[in-house]
């Protein structure tokens, strides 16, 4: 899911560069003008953060698939499919020494990707600080963007997994316990995000800065006031039902809450970006943002890209790691503790 979302997320800046075929100008490469990108700019940090995030996610995803690709190779009836899976599985044969290194590599990759999640969203919030527009400089931005990413991420995982477990009969693999735990994380990160909203407003007021204060009032009661109150409704009020066990344990209500949260997270970005840009310092530069049909087309197009990639993945590759499921089976336990000590067999 991450990779497909990053692929979609990459589409926006690349399309908005105006000349997308020159996207590689963002990378430091030896060119005829001996020019290098500006390493002091958060915009370049973002290039590094997002491309590293995408690469490491893709690597982790592929490594996680290797043993399952070997299973697909061994089960394939069609010789072409067997050859393709054979190539992709790299000739994996499940040797004990290989498993040992494999597990070490997975553990290290998991440890390496965790700070990446923090860095990529922190750097995105730094992107705002480079603009002079009021409302983009609250120092709470980095942690609140990270919490927002986890919040929206879990909502998206729930939106995908709840219908999937019903349609594909995966209730035994994605259990209610998983869903309930995800709901708890959503509630916790949602509260952090709402704390971020409160602090943002407080900073704007406490700064004593005329433009910051105007931005706050304008954001709440200006031409886009409806978006701000909808945002609070979606991201603050709606998830509060997750305090109740009845809603936390009901897949239907979790699905509904996740959809509302996704809308709320979209509104959050709309509020931060559009209200600040529409009414900045000079009334002469004020305006109203009305999306064109190309804006809608880009939005729908990225949703389409995401859904197509996701469905292709679900169709051709295992949606749940097979080897990890196997190792959870009671039959997979080695009896008598450590076999090497012997004598412990009942």
């Amino acid at each position: 899911m991450t990779i497909f979302a990053v692929a979609c997320a990459g589409m926006y800046p690349i399309l908005h560069m105006g000349r997308p075929w020159l996207a590689y100008w963002l990378l430091p490469y030896p060119n005829t003008m001996s020019l290098f990108p500006q390493f002091r700019s958060p915009l370049l940090w973002d290039v590094f953060a997002v491309s590293t995030y995408a690469t490491v996610s893709a690597l982790f995803w592929f490594v996680g698939l290797i043993p399952d690709l070997a299973t697909l190779r061994d089960r394939a009836q069609n010789p072409v499919a067997r050859m393709i899976f054979g190539m992709l599985s790299l000739g994996w044969r499940g040797a004990a020494s290989h498993w040992h290194r494999y597990e070490t590599a997975c553990l290290l990759l998991a440890g390496l990707s965790t700070p990446l999640v923090l860095s990529v969203h922190t750097v995105v919030s730094f992107d705002f600080t480079i603009g002079i527009i009021p409302g983009w400089h609250a120092t709470i931005f980095p942690p609140y963007f990270v919490a927002g990413a986890i919040y929206a991420g879990f909502a998206m995982v729930l939106i995908i997994s709840i219908p999937l477990r019903v349609v594909c009969r995966l209730e035994d693999f994605i259990t209610e316990k998983h869903l309930t735990n995800m709901a708890s994380i959503m509630l916790a990160t949602g509260l952090i995000v709402c704390f971020g909203y409160a602090m943002e407003a407080f900073f704007a007021y406490y700064s004593g800065n005329l433009y910051e204060r105007f931005m706050l009032v304008n954001r709440m009661f200006g031409q886009y006031g409806w978006a701000y109150w909808c945002l609070l409704l979606c991201n603050f009020l709606a998830p509060q039902v997750l305090w109740f066990k009845k809603f936390r344990t009901s897949p239907f209500w979790l699905f509904v809450v996740s959809l509302i949260v996704s809308v709320g997270m979209w509104l959050e970005r709309f509020v931060i970006i559009v209200t600040s840009l529409a009414n900045d310092f000079l009334p002469s530069s004020w305006g109203q943002y009305i999306p064109t049909r190309w804006d809608f087309a880009t939005f729908l197009g990225t949703i389409g890209l995401f859904v197509s990639l996701l469905f292709l993945f679900l169709r051709f590759l295992p949606m749940i790691s097979m080897y990890e499921m196997r190792s959870l089976l009671p039959a997979a336990k080695v009896n008598g503790g450590k076999g090497a000590h012997g004598g412990g067999h009942a």
């Binding site: 043993p67 299973t71 044969r93 499940g94 040797a95 004990a96 020494s97 498993w99 040992h100 494999y102 597990e103 080897y323 990890e324 196997r326 190792s327 997979a332 080695v334 450590k338 076999g339 090497a340």
Partner: peptide, 12 residues
């Protein structure tokens, strides 16, 4: 070498 469908710590 031993071959298994999932990692077994005791095996290595």
């Amino acid at each position: 070498d031993a071959y298994s469908p999932f990692p077994i710590e005791e095996l290595s």
